[in-house]
Amino acid sequence: MGAAIAVFMILVAATAPLLAAVAGQDYTTYHDNLLDSARGGVPLGGLGGISSEHWLGVEPGTGRDLFARVVYGAQVSLGVAVGATVLEVLIGLLVGTAAGLGGRWADAILTRFVDLVLALPILVIAISLLAIVPQDWPRPLLLATVIAVLGWGGTARITRGETLTLRTRDYVAAARLSGAGWFRIARREILPGLTAPVLTYAALLLPTNMIVEAGLSFLGVGVRTPTPSWGQMLSTATTWFRADPMYVLIPGGLLFLTLLSFVLVANGLRRALDPRQSEVLR
């Protein structure tokens, strides 16, 4: 079930331009004629202006098509989260294996450094960082990078721990005795053993990163208008939640569903990949 929703969301995000074209809408065009200006710009008609042309209604205050904004928003929200997660895993693997295999001093220094990264107040630093960078930098890429640079500590720590247990295994000792270098050992002997725990952890990181992206966009330092993201939509929706509840329910509901599906997928992965758990289940 979780996987089905997750796959569906990823498909929606990937095909956003196509879906918007099918609906015959784009996410920037204003439809002022569909709003009740005297009442603050709420959409005319019930359920936030849902009609055969505007499948999910229109955005209050601007009249932009909500369906187009939601699917493009999925692209941004998921894209940033996936990008950040991939980067975090890469950095974490690199630092974690280096610490695990690098000897006493390298381990001590890298571990302290990871502790430092873990102790950083992510949201505060991300807000200040995103507020000072030039505005013509591509925001989604920037968001993914900032989230990853501040958030790779967890993967590094897990990787190091696993590496330390793996390096004492007999097959690693055998490889060492047969003259393999550290790089080759890391690549051929350690990395395959890391796949399961790191993959599980990454699956849990993904929804966390989505929340961080939504949070940053909600706080106004994420993607910039007119580019939509779910967090940003929720941010503007706070002033509309009584006058146009659909505008809160749609992005909020999608965010909830997506997060839930990824958490379910992560749980499923952990169960499938963790040998102890699977034995219990059997």
Binding site: Y30, D32, S37, R39, G61, T62
Partner: peptide, 15 residues
């Protein structure tokens, strides 16, 4: 310039 959009962005024709 589209003043209707601007008015809506500022909170609608009542304010």
């Amino acid at each position: 310039v589209n003043r209707t959009s601007v008015v809506n962005a500022l909170g609608g024709s009542t304010i």
